[in-house]
Design a protein around this nucleic acid. Structure first.
Lengths: 224, 224
DNA sequence: GCTAGGCGACGTACGGTGTACGTAAGACGT
DNA sequence: ACGTCTTACGTACACCGTACGTCGCCTAGC
């Protein structure tokens, strides 16, 4: 009471933790983009002096790594219960896309800054477990994990530059932005590009990969 | 001659062009990393005042976009002449990897900053042409391009965080860095992870995709 | 040959950034 | 009661991107 009237400052000892800092950073990133994130902004968001952050986070890079870890840790990697590794693998790759949908800006940090954390290990563990469930071991398992993750990660980036191409194409059908003489196929595919559904594109590639892996476990010999 | 003795300063009129600036930026990025790139550093590299750069590059962001475009424009997308779309598609995806090998740091800029340039259109054109050659049109062609590009781009990023996992595993077999109780498959795959060959991993996934697409064009009906 | 005009290189300056360092105020074992 | 340790904090500095004004050279028209 008397403490409360002593001033507008928070009287309760405000506990500053790495978690609170990371969380604030994630919120700011989603609100104003990655580039707008500064230590000062994070401090302001928490109502704290800038240098106080450095008692819990050694670096801005470390903070960003924390952000990446936060997002990855939020990936839904729990087995859905069905024993079907195909469905599980699909779910795992989709988890990436879901996270990208929830944290569109922070996902960029994940993709850029390679993380080294328990969260990443969890992801790898889950992937390898699924590979093992499908009957793959050793190098093959690692390669399958690599391929799936590459697709999961890459398809997030595609939204960026494929979107740019679409903008280009849509900038008027007859415009000189895309020279029909030099880029005939692009122009020919204009309608398909404009109508494209990112979700369907993603599922298409995922299907392609899963069935390809599926055929790998039980190779069907078939000539011509 | 007399001009030469007038001073150590370059007497020939130093022509500053956007190309020279971008090129210097690429070199600096490869030398000291992306984060170390500053306008001042670029200017120093060219023996020029900082603000002179802004006569040719409106922005630092624009400069980075130029860097990305430079790398993408350097991708070897010329048809190899063989009429085999499979080989051509492989070559196209590999071109990404080759560029990542040549410009490891600058490639990060490419992946991060979505580019809007003629170079990107060239890439899309080539991809769509290959898809058409394989017999795909419209939405399917776009989706195949999406999938291939996602893999091409994503496998570059994999090197980053998969490498981190390996570091973690290799940090002593019995160390507590990777808890065998929580991550049994990771530990079990330790040897495979340590021995893994990024190039082979890449080719594995590429093969998987190409053959999957191949089967798509001539679907073999086969039940059970 | 001379001059008007414009373009491009440059210097200065400002607001903002990450963070090294020193300080001080509370928590706590003795 | 008193050291000690943790931790929030303020100051200061080097560096960043870039807006703006200046000024010298290069060229066009006579």
């Amino acid at each position: 009471m008397n403490a409360a009237r002593r001033g507008p400052e928070p009287v309760v000892r405000l506990v500053l933790t790495r978690e609170r800092i990371v969380h604030a950073a994630v919120e700011l990133i989603e609100r104003h983009g990655v580039d707008a994130l500064s230590m000062r902004a994070v401090a302001a968001e928490l109502g704290v002096a800038v240098m106080s952050l450095y008692n819990h986070v050694s670096n801005k890079a470390a903070l960003l790594e924390g952000v990446a870890e936060y997002v990855v840790a939020g990936l839904d990697t729990v087995p859905s219960g069905t024993g079907d590794w195909r469905a599980e693998a699909r779910a795992l790759v989709r988890a990436f896309r879901t996270a990208a949908h929830e944290y569109p800006h922070a996902m960029r940090v994940v993709l850029t800054h390679s993380i080294d954390s328990t969260a990443a290990s969890r992801l790898a563990e889950r992937s390898l477990a699924l590979a093992a469930e499908a009957g793959f071991r050793g190098a093959t398992a690692v390669r399958i994990v690599h391929t799936l993750m590459a697709y999961a990660v890459g398809s997030q980036l595609q939204a960026l530059w494929l979107g740019q191409l679409i903008d280009r194409v849509s900038e008027g059908p007859g415009m000189a932005r895309v020279d029909p003489a030099r880029f005939p196929h692009v122009v020919a595919s204009a309608s398909a590009l404009l109508a494209h559904d990112p979700e369907a594109d993603f599922e298409f590639g995922l299907d392609l990969l899963i069935t390809a892996i599926e055929r790998l476990v039980e190779p069907v010999d078939q000539s011509t």
